[in-house]
Design a protein around this nucleic acid. Structure first.
Lengths: 401, 401
DNA sequence: AACATTTTATATAGGTTCTAAATTTAGTTC
DNA sequence: GAACTAAATTTAGAACCTATATAAAATGTT
C-alpha cells in the first residue's frame, strides 16, 4: 500500500535538525537557550545540532554581541542564524506576452528580478524557452548569484498541472512547451524545476504574503481576463487528479465556453457595447485611442455615472455567482480576488459581498489581493521554498561567497 | 506558528511500532522475516517491537504451524498477528426516522449490529439520545463485546460538521442535539465520539470498501432525497472551514432553495405530475396506495415506456449538471453515486455519462455505490478506525476476554 | 581586587534504540 | 545420527538523547 517508514537512530538527528531549522527560518538570530525553549530539546543536543548545521553550511554563528538593548548578566550566549545565502530559489511567471523571474534567498527576501517580453504570442517553443532562460540568468545577475546556487525553481503557467508536474491539456500548445521547459532548465543548469498552475501559486502567495496570512481555508480567484482559482484547505493546496482543482471554465454561469470572461474582459466588452449606442455618460478611455478598461468603469461608477453603475451591477452579479458557487462547494473562510483588476476593485467587492448571503449558505469574507502583478511570482517563490524546506538535509548548500 | 516536534530516542520505537502495526493491519499472520522485508528494520529490532506490542496487548504470537501448503526448510518462523479483538469501534448512522449502529473489530470486520426507529421525527433530544444509546448497547451485545472495549465511536449525521466536531448549522435542531449526543455518550461510557457529516462518511466508506478502492481523488454524492457530497483529494477528506465542503444546496442548478431535490424526490414528484394528467403509460406504483418511486420509473423506462423515458431524461440532465459542476471544480478521477437509489440507477448513470463531455472539460469516471444503506455506517467504522490507528500507542487495549 | 551572582557552555555518566556480525537453535532431509 | 537450512539469539558497537555536575564568562558588590 503506502510507504512504510522505519526509523534508524539517524532519523532523530534529522527530525531535530529540521525542527531547529524551522525555528530559525522564522526568526533572526537565536540563542541556544531560545532554541531549547522552542524545541524542548536539551542544551547539549541543540548545540550539537547547530554545530552540525553550521558545518554543513546552513547556519552561521554570530560573534557575541550583547550590546543590543540594555545589558544582561551571565555568560554571553552563543547566537546562531540561518544562512539565508546558503542558496537561492527562482520564481518564474510565464505569461502570454512576457515572462518575469525573481530571485529570492532562503528567507524569501527578494534579491533580484528581470522581465522580458516575448516577440509575439506564437513564437516557437525553443525561442520561448530561450527567452525564459535569458531572463532567469539576468535575474540571477541582478541578485549577484550564480546558477549553481539555485536550489529550486518554480514556474507558474496558465494551465492545469498535476501532482507529478505534468500538464493536463495536451492539445494546447502548453503541453509540449512545458515539458520542454522543465527538461531544458534541468539540462542546462541542473536545476530542480517545479511546474505549477498560476492560480494555485496565487493562492500560496496570498497565504504567505497577501491577505490570507494565517488562514487555512482560502480560495484565491484570478479574475482579470478569465476566472481561475487556487484552493487551500486546512493549509494544503488542492490539485485534483489531473491538476484541475479550482477550474471554472465550464461552470453553468459562464456564457460562451472557452471565451475569455474575467472581470477585465467583461468590463471592456460591456463598456464597448454601451458606448456603441449614444448614451449620456462620462465613460471614456483613459488614453485616447485605447479601449475603456475596468478601472475606467470603476472610476466613473464611483463618480455616479449611470452607465458605469449599470456595468458595475452586471459585473457584481457575475462575480457574486462565481464566488457563491465556489463558497458553497468549498466553504472557505476567505475568498481573495487577485489579478490586475484587484487593486481598483474595492467598490466591486462591496457590492459582491452584499449579494452573497442570498446565493450561498456559507458566505465567506472577501478581500482584494495586495500583491498586484507579483501574485504569481510571490507564490512561485513560496512553492520553491517549500520544496527546499521539505528536503533541507538532502540538499547541498551553495559554497560561501 | 505550528507545533515543533523534537525527537527523543523513544520516538524511534514509536515510529517503528507504528510501521509494524500498519503492516499487520493489512495482512493476516506475518513472520518476522516478512516484517523485516516490509519495514527495512533488523531482525533484532522487529522482534523487540513485536514482543513489546504483544505485552501491551495489540499483537499475539501464533503457535508454530508450518503445515500450511507444502513444507519449508529451516527453523520455523515465529508468527505474529494483529489482535483484532484488542478493541472495538462503533459506526453510527443517525437518520431522521431511525438509527443504526454497527460494531467492528480492529480489522474492520463486522461483529454486530442493531437498528431502531425513532418514535417520530420530532421527539425531544433526550429521547433521541436514549434511543441511540440503547441501540449501541444492543449492537455491542450482538457482537459479544462490552462498552469498556469500545475504543472509538463515529456518528454520521446529515449536517455539516467542522474539524473540531462541532455542528455548523446552529439554527437547526441538529445543533443542540449533537453536542448533547457527544457528551452523553462520553459521560455514560467514557467513549471517544467523533461527529461527521454523512456524505463525508460515505466517501470514506466507498474508498475503503466500495467502488473507489485505491482511488485518491474521488467525490461521493449522496443523491436520494437531496444532494450532498463528500470529497477526497489526494487520499484526504476535505471539510472546509466550517465543515461545509461538498455542500451543494445553493448551487444555481437547484430550483427551490432548501427543498428536497435528490433523485428519489424528483422522480416521485415528476411521476406524480405526469400521472395527474391522463397519459398512455405503464407507470404505476409498485404497491397499491403508495407513490411511484424512482425504481418504478427506471423499470418502466427500461421497458420502453415513453413517459418514464422522459422523466429519466430530465433526471439525467439534472444529475449530469450536478456531476459536471463538481467535476469542473474538483477534478476527481471518479464520481460515485450513493444512497438508496444507487442500486437501481444503472440506466441513469449511462445516460449521465453521455452528457458529461459537453458539460465539463474534465469528465470523471462514474460508478454506482455497491454499499447500499450501509454506506454511512461503513464510512463511520472506517473513520473510527482511522482515529484508533492514528493514536494506537496512546490507547489501552481491552482486557483479553 | 576578591568574591558573589547569574547565565551559559562543556564534560561525564547513563539510558534507549538501532545495526551488524557471530553463534545457537529447531526444524527438515537423507 | 549427520548434513542442511532458515530463523532466533547473543554480543559488540554506534548514534543519539537526557541528566547532572563542573567550568567559564560576563556583571555587580564589598
Amino acid at each position: 500500500m503506502s510507504e512504510i517508514t522505519a526509523g534508524t537512530p539517524q532519523l532523530l538527528r534529522r527530525v531535530n535538525a529540521e525542527a531547529i531549522l524551522l525555528v530559525m527560518r522564522s526568526t533572526t538570530a537565536v540563542t541556544v537557550t531560545e532554541l531549547i525553549e522552542a524545541t524542548g530539546l536539551t542544551r547539549a543536543t541543540v548545540i550539537a545540532v547547530c554545530e552540525d548545521l553550521e558545518q554543513r553550511g546552513w547556519v552561521r554563528e554570530l560573534p557575541n554581541q550583547r550590546d543590543f538593548g540594555g545589558y544582561q548578566k551571565g555568560r554571553p550566549a552563543r547566537r546562531f542564524e540561518l544562512n539565508e545565502r546558503a542558496g537561492y530559489v527562482l520564481g518564474v511567471d510565464v505569461g502570454v506576452a512576457k515572462t518575469t523571474v525573481v530571485v529570492a534567498d532562503l528567507r524569501g527576501t527578494l534579491q533580484g528580478r528581470a522581465s522580458q517580453p516575448f516577440r509575439s504570442a506564437e513564437i516557437p517553443a525553443t525561442e520561448r524557452i530561450e527567452v525564459i532562460d535569458r531572463t532567469a540568468i539576468a535575474a540571477l545577475e541582478d541578485a549577484g548569484a550564480s546558477p549553481q546556487d539555485v536550489m529550486s525553481v518554480c514556474v507558474g503557467i496558465a494551465a492545469p498541472v498535476d501532482r507529478k508536474g505534468d500538464v493536463l491539456v495536451t492539445q494546447s500548445f502548453w503541453g509540449k512547451f512545458d515539458v520542454g521547459l522543465r527538461s531544458a532548465l534541468t539540462d542546462l543548469h541542473g536545476w530542480n524545476v517545479l511546474l505549477e498552475n498560476d492560480a494555485n501559486l496565487a493562492a500560496l502567495g496570498e497565504r504567505w504574503r497577501g491577505s490570507a496570512v494565517g488562514i487555512d481555508d482560502v480560495v484565491v480567484i484570478l479574475a482579470s481576463e478569465r476566472f481561475g482559482s487556487g484552493v487551500i484547505e486546512d493549509g494544503r493546496l488542492l490539485r485534483g487528479s489531473g491538476g484541475g482543482f479550482g477550474e471554472m471554465a465550464y461552470l453553468d454561469l459562464v456564457e460562451g465556453v472557452g471565451d475569455p470572461f474575467g472581470i477585465a474582459s467583461l468590463a471592456r466588452r460591456w463598456a464597448a457595447e454601451a458606448l456603441a449606442s449614444p448614451a449620456k455618460t462620462t465613460l471614456r478611455p483613459s488614453a485616447p485611442g485605447t479601449e475603456v478598461e475596468a478601472e475606467d468603469v470603476f472610476a466613473a461608477a464611483a463618480a455616479g455615472d449611470a452607465v458605469a453603475l449599470a456595468i458595475l451591477d452586471r459585473l457584481s452579479d457575475r462575480v457574486a455567482r462565481v464566488v457563491a458557487t465556489v463558497s458553497t462547494m468549498v466553504n472557505p473562510e476567505l475568498v481573495v480576488i487577485g489579478g490586475g483588476v484587484a487593486k481598483s476593485a474595492g467598490v466591486l467587492l462591496e457590492s459582491v459581498a452584499e449579494r452573497l448571503p442570498q446565493l450561498t449558505a456559507t458566505p465567506p469574507r472577501l478581500a482584494a489581493s495586495p500583491l498586484g502583478d507579483a501574485i504569481v511570482t510571490v507564490g512561485a517563490v513560496r512553492r520553491a521554498l517549500d520544496h527546499v524546506e521539505a528536503n533541507w538535509l538532502e540538499m547541498e548548500p551553495a559554497a560561501a561567497s
